[in-house]
Every structure is written in C-alpha cells, then in structure tokens.
Design a protein around this nucleic acid. Structure first.
Lengths: 202, 202
DNA sequence: TAAAAGGGGTAACAGCGTTACCGACTGAAA
DNA sequence: TTTCAGTCGGTAACGCTGTTACCCCTTTTA
C-alpha cells in the first residue's frame, strides 16, 4: 500500500503539486486561514515540509496558488449565471451570485479580497489575472448600455461601482457588522439605488 | 533613573495599562499588525510578557483595547467634520473623512473592519460600542430627510448604504485593487450615484 | 509577628516558517 | 558498466510566536 503522496510522486511533479494544493484547499475551506500551516499541509499529504519549499518556494508561493484557485472558482460562479433576456436582470443575478460565492467560501473570499494571510501579497501578474474575473460583470454592463437601458457611460466604471457595492456588503457581513438578513436587505437596496442612478430616465 | 514601565508602575495599574496600550499603538501604526507580538510590546514598554496576561488576559484582550481605540479615533475623525449649511454637502464631507481616516491609519482600519489579527474577534459589547461611531453619519442623513432633500426613507438604512459604499472603496483600495486616484474617482462616482438615487426629484 | 495572597520575572512548552546538513536517487559522461 | 555530478527530500535545528507553570517578592491582613 502506498500513500497518496507516493502515488502522486510516481505520477510526476505536477501531481505532487496538485496533491499539495488539494490538501491546502481542504484545510482552508474546512478550518480557515489559521489552519494553513506548512506543517499541517505536509502532514496531510504525507510528505515533509521541504517538498513545499522546493515546489512552491515557500508558504507564500502556495498561498498564491490558492489565491488563483479562488479566483478561478469565483469566475466559474459568476460565469455560471444564467443569461436573461433583460440585461439588467442578468446584471442583478450576477450581483447575487457574487454575494452567494463569498458566503459559500468565505475563507477564499477573505484571502482574495482582504489579505487575511499575514505575510502574503499576490504578485502583479496574479493580480492582473484576477482582474479578468470581472470580464463577466463588465460585459453585462455593456449589454445594458447597448440596449439603451443605462445612460451613456464607461462600462468598466459602472461595473467597478457595482463591484464596490457588492464587496462592501459582503465584507461587512463577513466581519460581523450585519446579520445575514440585514446584509440581504442592504444588498438589494444598494442594487436598486445604483441601477436606478445609472438607468436612462423612463 | 527609572524606566517608563517603573514610572507607570508607581502611578498605578491604570498607568501601566495605558503605557502598554501606547506601546502597542505605536507598533501597530508604525509596522502593522504583524509587529503586534506580546514579546515586542512587553520589551518596548520594559516589562515581562506576564504583565500583559495579568492586565489584559492575553493578546486578544489587548487587541480588543486597540480595536476600541481605533473606533474612538475614527469617531473623532468623523465628528470633527465641519458642519455645512447644506446637509447633503455635510454628508459628502463625512464620506470623504471616512476614506481619509482609513488611508491615514490603514492598520487600524483593517483590524477594525477586516479582522486581520488572526485569532481576534471583538466581544459583543465592544461591537455594540463601535456601532455608536455611526451616529454621526446617521444624524447627517436625518438632517437631509428633515430638510426634504432626501425622499422619505429610513435614515439608518440610507446611512448603512453609504457606509457600505465607502467601505467597499476603501477596502479594495487597501487591498491593492485600485490605485489612489482610481479609488478617488470611484468614490466620487459612488457618492453621486447614491445621493442622486436618494434625493427628491428636482 | 506571622500568615496569606497576589503580582511579576524566568524559563519552559508546543507550534510556527524556514533552512543547513546529509543521504539517496537519477542521469550523463567516460 | 562504472563513476561522477547534480538534484530531490527527510531530519533536525534556529529563531520566532502565544501561553503558562513555577517561584520569589512584596503587600496586606489577622
């Protein structure tokens, strides 16, 4: 009988990387960033801590991998929103998916947007890649503009504003300043106010 | 010659508490949350780590004191905004003071609103006290309502929405997703959009 | 005066990220 | 085929973290 680590080792370096990432993800989702220690990850996957240093260059390198993984999952959550004939309804659904993701994987969200892993800061390239996640809401805003439902303006600027609003609600909710229901109400109010501000006068 | 700690010790327990808090504040402001270690604080003030445990019950007890201090400073920053004949202009000035405080003392801000000190969570009473900081923006919104400049609505709800918007901008700015200038533009756009949404039709 | 009680310093514990050291294994060259 | 170079990884350590058991000393009380 061979351990998961030995199996991955036979399959090559890439498999070991993946196994370590999986173990780290499991620890993160189950217990939060505090459980993300090099020793625990190594012990979970069945190798020594040294392996993590040779493959990722240190804890921060591994955390950056998780950071990217978080944005991938986030992007899938946003990209998976069903399109709607009404572009504004589609945009609102994306907003709700934003909050739903943050509540579903709060530890990921806080690593991605609130820097809760002490020494870690994402590399410029990782940050740029992360920005691409927001192509989904930006294109939704563009559709609203094309349909003449929003008054002439920069799509990225509007999308950023909606992003800020969604992040504001979710961040304060995760920090314990709002209950789930309060946050939900504030979220809807916020969406109504912003969308009405951007909409063309009817 | 006596150390600062010995002087404080003669002046009583309260003075020692204050000296420890001051040392912790200095470390926090200068170097951020990572520098907030029991050993460094004790060494800075000239006592053993044990004192911090007898006076504060542990690191978290001391951090809660800093948390409260942060909200006191924050409240002073918001309360110090000069009143304006136009309630809406006053409200906007409060918003700008919000962001200015966060940028002036980012380490405090992140402890207060983003829980960047790993194990720490404020007590319910501390959280309730913190909420009183927001009496300033709420009363400003009430003035806008009284003056008939805002359409009939709950003042707390509107103030919360503005809080969420300000926090969203500041939080993403501190996380490195917006440059200073980008954040400033987004902040103004956000304020314009929300205030126009809440204003009575002219 | 003697006893009780409490605060504070020392030194230790377990755990953290990281790395020097060294053995083992791989691949290429002779 | 044999030998050598080079890399990968496990062990054990370093210095750091929060925390606490132990003991001394001071102060208060009987």
């Amino acid at each position: 009988m061979s351990s998961a680590y030995e199996q991955a080792q036979q399959a090559g370096q890439g498999a070991v990387r993946a196994a370590i990432c999986d173990a780290a993800i499991e620890l993160l989702v189950a217990e939060g960033p505090a459980a993300l220690t090099v020793r625990r990850i190594a012990s979970a996957v069945g190798c020594s801590t040294k392996v993590i240093y040779t493959l990722f260059g240190g804890k921060d390198g591994l955390v950056e991998e998780l950071w990217r993984e978080g944005f991938t999952r986030f992007g899938q959550a946003l990209g998976g929103v069903r399109r709607d004939a009404d572009p504004v309804a589609y945009l609102e659904a994306i907003g709700r998916a934003y909050r739903a993701y943050a509540l579903a994987e709060p530890h990921y969200y806080r690593i991605m947007f609130e820097g809760v892993v002490p020494g870690f800061e994402p590399s410029p390239t990782a940050r740029q890649d992360a920005r691409e996640t927001f192509a989904v809401p930006v294109s939704a805003v563009e559709e609203c503009l094309k349909a003449g439902l929003f008054a002439e303006a920069d799509a990225v600027e509007i999308a950023d504003t909606l992003w800020i609003a969604a992040h504001g609600v979710v961040s304060l909710e995760l920090a314990g300043f709002f209950t789930h229901d309060e946050a939900e109400r504030r979220f809807e109010k916020m969406a109504d106010a912003l969308i009405s501000a951007y909409s063309t006068p009817t």
